[in-house]
């Protein structure tokens, strides 16, 4: 061993010394000088989670509202807005929970706010009640006719278009424009109040469409096909969309 070191040229020894000093300094700094919370990921993650957990809440959550407000939640529970959280409309209310007298949550009263959900937009699911604010009682605040905690039309909807505007619009431009909804659909009265649970009917027989569209039908002007040969096992509306122009 001793011989080996003696054989090493002096420059190699010098380089080795510099290198070892460097390594030793790094080791000492890392091992003894740097505090553990700077180099232990587990500690850092724990403290990071603490900071995350300690962040302030802005939205108090729906449950807590009922503890003071009795009337509105009770009304809301039976209406169409039962799935809405209070803060969906009234905004972040944690500050109001902490200090009920001084901080009041917002209460949107303008038409604009209801429009976030109820202005017509062709991407919204069909059946979701939508209106065109320019033609639906312009400038009148929504809440004069609709109670936001139990919104329903002031009268039971007379026309299907009240909810199915999208279909109504398409149908108006189609060849079926003059055919009333009730010709093809039977809507039980309860559909108007519980639209999701009581669903209107659709024609379930080919012969229904055949009244106008079968070969030799007495109806003039309607395009006809030989129903015996055309599309045998399908009901017509499985391929043709009767509400649009051309019915594709």
């Amino acid at each position: 061993m001793k011989d080996f070191f003696k054989k090493l040229p002096e420059q190699a020894v010098r380089v080795a010394v510099v290198f070892l000093v460097f390594v030793a300094v790094v080791f000492v700094i890392r091992q003894f000088i740097i505090p553990p919370e700077m180099k232990e990921p587990a500690l850092q993650q724990a403290s990071s989670m603490e900071r995350e957990v300690a962040k302030e809440i802005q939205y108090a959550g729906a449950q807590i509202c009922e503890q003071c407000h009795e009337k509105e939640p009770q009304i809301k529970k039976i209406g169409y807005h039962r799935d809405l959280s209070c803060e969906s409309c009234h905004g972040a209310a944690q500050k109001h929970v902490e200090n009920p007298t001084e901080v009041k949550p917002t209460s949107p009263k303008k038409r604009d706010y209801c429009a976030y959900c109820h202005k017509y937009n062709s991407s919204r699911p069909t059946g979701f009640p939508q209106i065109n604010p320019d033609t639906h009682n312009p400038r009148k605040p929504c809440i004069t006719c609709h109670n936001p905690h139990n919104p329903k039309p002031p009268t039971t909807p007379r026309s299907c278009a009240a909810c199915h505007a999208q279909i109504e619009r398409a149908k108006a431009a189609s060849y079926h424009a003059l055919i009333a909804c009730s010709v093809c659909h039977t809507a039980p009265e309860k559909h108007k109040t519980s639209p999701r649970t009581v669903i209107p009917t659709k024609p379930d027989k080919r012969e229904f469409c055949g009244k106008c569209h079968d070969k030799g039908s007495p109806r003039k002007g309607a395009p006809t096909v030989d129903m015996a040969a055309h599309g045998e096992k399908y009901v017509c509306w499985q391929c043709h969309y009767p509400h649009t122009l051309g019915g594709i």
């Binding site: 995350e52 957990v53 962040k55 809440i57 939205y59 959550g61 799935d83 959280s85 803060e87 969906s88």
Partner: peptide, 23 residues
């Protein structure tokens, strides 16, 4: 997004779920 971690640990829903009117 943290799934509103500060709400979860306190038993609350993430705020986007809380305010979603259609669930």
């Amino acid at each position: 997004c943290t799934f509103c971690y500060h709400r979860l640990v306190k038993g609350l829903l993430p705020v986007c779920v809380e305010v979603c009117p259609k669930q």
